[in-house]
Structures are given as structure tokens and as C-alpha cells.
Design a binder for these strands. Sequence first.
RNA 1: GGGCACGUAGCUCAGUUGGAUAGAGCGUCCGCCUCCUAAGCGGAAGGUCGGCAGUUCGAAUCUGCCCGUGCCCA
Length: 649
Amino acid sequence: MYHILEKTIQSAFREKVRSTFGSDADITLEQPRQTSFGEVALPIAFQLARALKQNPKKIAADLVEAVGPIPGVAAMEIAGNGYINIRFDRGAYGAALLNSVAAEAVDSDEKIIVEHTNINPNKAAHIGHLRNAVLGDTFVRMLRAVGNKVEVQNYIDNTGVQVADVVVGFHFLEHKTPAEVAALIAENRFDYLCWDLYARTSQYYKDNPEALKWRAETLHSIEAGHGALSELGHLVANAIVKAHLATMLRLGIEYDVLPRESEILHLKFWASAFELLKERKAIYFEEEGKNKGCWVMPASAFRGSDEANEDSKVIVRSNGTVTYVGKDIAYQLWKFGLLGKDFYYEPHTTYADGHQVWASTAVPQAGPTPKFGGGATVYNVIDVRQSYLQDVVVAGLNALGYNHQADQSIHFSYEMVALSKRCCADLGIPLTPEDMEKPYVEVSGRKGLGVKADDLMDQLIDTALREVASRHAEDTPEQQRAIATEIAMGALRYFLLKFTRTTVIAFDFQEALSFEGETGPYIQYATVRARNILRKLTERGEAIPDFGAELNAEAMAAQLGDEDAWQILLAASKAEAAVERAIASGEPAHVARYAFQLAQSFNNFYHQFPILIEPDRNRKVFLLWMTSFFARQLERTLAILGIAAPAYM
RNA sequence: GGGCACGUAGCUCAGUUGGAUAGAGCGUCCGCCUCCUAAGCGGAAGGUCGGCAGUUCGAAUCUGCCCGUGCCCA
């Protein structure tokens, strides 16, 4: 509702600014410094003052005169040196909220692809991976909430160095056969086992550099697709992908399709992309210099036109192997439906809600399978350290002449999750003097340095469970655990979302395990309270009023004359505006912050207005409507954040 | 050496794209459970928005130069 009125005001002014002053300046809306100034402020007169060489105050007055009455607006006043302050018609506003039945949903046929998670399938997921997945998943929920068609992809690099290294560990260090590894997979926490083995193998390379030949041998075997090493590679990657899906499902994160690198290889995606790149002269064969014998992309393609830097990017090495970027260009082309090729798909996993995840396969399937890829816009959720490579991929699209798709290929970047020094101390990680100088310590899978996702979730659940058990001792352990899990996961998702994407999260247990203040549970608690009021009402034998019948614009106006009630309702009605703003800025943190403010508003309301014992019938009906409106807004916003609203707390 | 970020209260962070008196949580101090759940609420203290210059009606926000930190590319 709020953003609809915003747009009405905006367009009314835009039109008059154009017709009266011949300017098509942007109409920016602000929130007045003081709530007593009104609901919306326009500084447009200042923007026009310079060009028109007129007093802003006069411009503002002329403009207000020209615009005339706007539906939904009660008053416009000139304030300060030329601010236009706008007051809403409270009765009309309240009545509109009362009648709004999940408006809009600007349906679009265009598909948006969001790729996230993309964890190397060679070890357990850690907190850095969680940030990726939670950011990606929340952004997907935001896009879907406003009516977009979204496809969620989780790319699986099942033929890469990292998988090879774990295979090296099993085969050369542990002397395990595929059958033995299969047996290990059947046991518990294979992903944890690999976590340690990967670190051990990495250390072994360090001490015995000649062992790197094992890695090369393994990579060749995996690429060729036969032999014990290849078999081990598939066993490891498939088992770890399963573990990752299970880990992410704990946080309510689901995928639509898992495109795998093995199929990119077998279906010769790269060969098609290579031909395209050569044909369109996006890359060239280097005849001399250090990159002699390589196919390279000229630096000018991705570094602006600065001639200063001569460093071109190698796409195909002189030994004929393609770099990671090369494969990524092929994959990106496929995402836009530009490759002229497609995967085959087979069912991978079915979630409890019936939702099916598909995985790519090189084998044609008998029955009908869905189509994936061919998006109009592609978001790649990848951490900021990959910026350079992402630029090269986009440059590849541009060099091929796909400028529009290049613009629609968005690196949804975010800063890493590091470990605070206190966190390292908690984990018993010894810090070098070098580390002590730094503000935080970088997570390293290679060193086995990090907080495992499942460990963290378990710890959060334990902490929440102690609290739930002390508050609801009468409940069964299963019930307590279910509630504690919802609270723990809510806390974790909120913790990862409240920071903007450019902020490095220095992970700290004390902060992450907190359930008070600006946290997920704070918002959940407000939601539980709102619903409790309505539940208590029916428990007392009273019916929830028919708000549509008992309230109208007049009644709303009377009740909303109360300044506090009005401000609280106004805040509660801005959910859609907050989501739109967050999508425009690509910042899920804005939704998270709004959810917190919404909960604060509700708590404010809760403490200020006793509802069930309110003697005045009209007022009580109004307060109950406010309560149900809050409950709905909180539930919606939590759903967008992927946070559950527990039955009780 | 080049590129990209960041620097705001004791700590951790927001700041709606240049607007009116810079906000929140944590921590500290004081207060509130006879009342819909205290995972809550109210109040207090706490700031040279890294520094200097510039752009203009107006700068935490834009530009330049410094200082400091992180990441990436050679």
C-alpha cells in the first residue's frame, strides 16, 4: 500500500514538473526528519531551483498549486526553505490496507536464473558456504515474492582439483578401494571425514611436492571417465553433494537443477563455446611471449580500454587443456540459451514437499524431462574474490557480441566470512604472530580451518533447546527440539543476512549464538506474540471480528487520529516497499533490517496498547485488526527471509 | 606495481543512491513482570562519520590527494 501511494505521488509530481517547468528531474521521496512533518517529503524544489534560478520556496508553492489534490493525500505543506511535506489521508489509507487482498504481482514470462551454493563436492560445507546459499536463497525468495519466475541452479564442479585431491587421499595415502570408500559413505559423516582427508592431502603435497603427480594422474582419469580413480571421484562427489543438499535443507534451501561439470565435459559444451569464440574472434592464438601456444582473450576486452595493462587472459593452455574460465563461459552461454546445446536431465532428489531437483546427465532420457537454462537475467552468487574471473566471463559474452546478455549477467558478489580471533581461540586454532596482526583469520578448506555448517547448526539448536526446555518443560522432547530448530535456523539465517554484502563477517560464536536484540528470534517472538493475542481471544470464547464489516474509512480515521497508532501502522505497511527497494539495490540485508524494524514496531504496539481487555468495542476491533495485520506482515516478511514462524516460543 | 572494496558510538554494523537535529543492536548504568509470554519494554551516557581540500543552496554520501585495512591480478 505504502509504495503504491508513493508511486501515485511520484507520477503526479513528475507530470507537473514536466508540464510546468519543462524538467524531467527524478522525483525523489524522503522520509521527513520528524514524523510530525508528515509521511513523505519532496526536495524537488531544491533540485529545480538551480536550473530555474528561482526561490525554492516559490517553486514548491507553485508546484503544490499545480498538482492539486491527489487521491489518498490529505494535505501538502511547504516547510523549511522549500520542502514539500505530504500527509496521507489516514482513514483512506487504513481502509485500503483493510481491503488489500495481496495486490499486484507483476507477472513476467522472462525467467531469472539464480546460481548459488556451488560448493566443491569434496568436503563438508562451512560458514562461508552458508553465507552464499542464504544470500542466494533469500534473493530468490525476494524475486518470487514480487511475481518473478526464478530458476535456482547449483553448479557442481565434480571433476575439479579439489575432488581430485580427496581421491588422491583415499587412493594414494589411505590405499582404499572404491568398495571400501563406498562402505565409508554408508557410515556417518562422510563429509567430515573428507574435510580432514582433504586437509591431510594438502599438507602432504606441501611436504612432498612430487606427490602432485598423483593429482595430475587423478585429474586425467576423472576427465577420461574410467578407471578406479574416476570411480572414486564419482563416489566422493555424489556423496558430498548429497551431504550438501541435506545441510542446506536444514535451512530451508532447495534447488531446481544441478548442472554438473562432468556433463559440460562429456557433452562437449566447451568445444561449442570454443568454436564460437574462435569464429567471432573473441580469442586469438598467441604466437609469442610467455603465453605462446595459448588461446587468450585480449586484456582490452575486460579491463576497459586502458592500454597500460597488457595482461591477456589465457583461456586454453598451450597443452590444450581449457581453464576454469573457459568452461565458465560455456556454462554462462548455456544459461542464456546461446550455446545451441543442452544437458539431459535425470531426477536427483525429491524434497519432502514434493519439489523435485534434477541433475544434468550425458545420457538421453526416455520420458519427458523439464527444460532448464535459457534465462533472461542471470545472477551468479559468488564471493568477491572471484570478481576478476567473473569480469572475464562477461567480457567473453561481450566479445561474442552478446552485449545485452553481458549486461544481464550479474555477479551477485559478497565478502567472505572470516573467523574472528576470539573464534579461533574458542576452536583451539593456534594463531601465528602474523595472524595476530590481522583483524580476522581467513577460512581455509585446504588447511581444514573453519567452522563446519552442521556443527554450527547443532550448536545453535542445543543453545535454543536449553531455553525452550526451561520455558516449556511440559512439552515432549520432540516438540521442544522442533521449536528449538526453527529458532536456531532463524537465528542463523538472520545473522548471515543482517550484514550488507560488502561487509566481511568476522564470525564470532558469541554473536551468532545470541537470540536477543537484533536477531532472528526477536522477530519470531514478535510474530508468536501477535498470533497469541488472536488465539487467546478465541480461547476466551470471543470470535475474531469481521474486520471488513466492522471497520471503514471513517472508523479508521477516528482510530488513526492517535499519533502512535498511526505511526505504528505506517511502519507495518511498508513491507512491500522494503522488498522492492531491496531487489533494486540487490541487498537482502534491507529486507532483514525491515523485518527487525517491523518487529520493533509490533513490540512497541504490544506494550502500549492492551488489546484483549480494551473496554471500548470499536477500539478493540481496530486493535485486533492491527494485530492481525501485523501478524500477516511479519509472517510474509519472515517467509521471504526463509525464517520459520514457530508455533510458540 | 595495477584493480576492487572498506574506514561511522567502547564493540559489531545500518544509513532508502546529495537533504531537515547521523541511527540500531551488543556492552555499561537506572527502571518495568497483580496486566495479551521479560527471547520483551522504557530511560541515560556514548560521535571531529579516518584526514585535508574541492564541487553547491546542502556532503557520512560525489571528486581529488593523503593515512590505514582487506581481497584480487601480475
